[in-house]
Simulated assay, not measured.
Amino acid sequence: MTPLVAVLLSIGALLIAALAGYALYLWRRVWRNERQQAALQARRHAEIAADLRILANCLLDEQVPLIEGAIRIKVLLDNYDVGLGQDPRCQVFQDLFDATAQVPTHAAWKALDKAERRRHEAAFSALELQHKAAARRSARWLLDEALAPKAA
């Protein structure tokens, strides 16, 4: 083996070792980022679960209007666990959400004339009478079973 070949092989080996080290460094960054993303997702999931517990308790204690509470719970359920949001025991939240989807909100609600607002409010009252018991059962189920802390 000539000295030139030996030098080129040494440089090639060093280059391969340097690239392998850099690849390892990059993979460690990827793994660290994946762990951080998983921790962030777990924290977000726990925060949404806590918000759902608060809303379900508020709905049961009648601290929030039934329609508003049901809509908020439905939206949080969709962000928490789509499967849970589609559970038949939570169907009432979807039903109330669908029944009120066309109702204007915020500034658009304020812009409605009184007759139109009263018409919507009458519809809200009818929906509350129709769905109150089911919404309370669903909120209780969420608290007692679906969102209950898991025993280790």
Rank of each mutant, 00 (worst) to 15 (best):
L77F: 07
V75K: 09
A135D: 08
A20S: 08
A23C: 07
S10K: 09
D51G: 03
D78A: 14
Y22R: 15
V82S: 12
D144P: 04
R35V: 04
R44G: 08
A134E: 08
Y80E: 04
A126D: 14
A70G: 03
R29V: 10
A20I: 06
M1D: 11
L59F: 07
V5D: 08
R136G: 05
Q37L: 15
K132C: 02
Y22M: 10
A38R: 15
R140Y: 06
D144L: 09
D113S: 06
K150R: 11
A46P: 01
A135G: 04
R136A: 14
L112M: 07
A139W: 05
H120P: 05
K114H: 11
Q130M: 13
D81P: 03
L147V: 10
A13W: 10
H45I: 05
L9D: 12
Q94R: 11
V103P: 02
V30F: 12
R117S: 00
A133C: 08
E34Q: 15
L142I: 07
C90E: 04
L9E: 11
Y80D: 06
R28P: 07
A111D: 02
R43C: 06
L52M: 08
Y80K: 04
A108Q: 12
R35A: 13
P88L: 08
E145C: 09
L40I: 09
A38F: 01
T2Q: 13
V92F: 04
L77D: 05
L142G: 04
D81H: 13
W27F: 13
L76P: 02
W27C: 06
N33L: 14
R29T: 12
E47M: 15
V92N: 02
V7I: 14
D61M: 10
K110S: 08
A46V: 08
A134Y: 01
A70P: 06
Q102A: 14
H120E: 00
I16V: 15
Y22G: 12
R117A: 05
P65I: 06
L96D: 01
N57E: 13
R119Q: 11
A146V: 06
D144R: 09
S10F: 10
I54P: 04
L59C: 10
D95V: 13
L66Q: 01
I54M: 10
I48G: 06
A139R: 06
G21T: 07
A122L: 07
L59H: 00
L9W: 11
K150H: 10
Q36E: 14
A56H: 03
G69A: 15
I67N: 05
E34G: 07
F97V: 04
A101R: 06
E145L: 07
I11Q: 13
D144N: 10
V75D: 14
G83T: 11
Q36T: 09
L52C: 05
L9T: 13
L8G: 08
L4Y: 09
A115L: 00
A42L: 12
K150L: 10
L15Q: 13
R119S: 08
I11H: 11
D98P: 00
R117H: 03
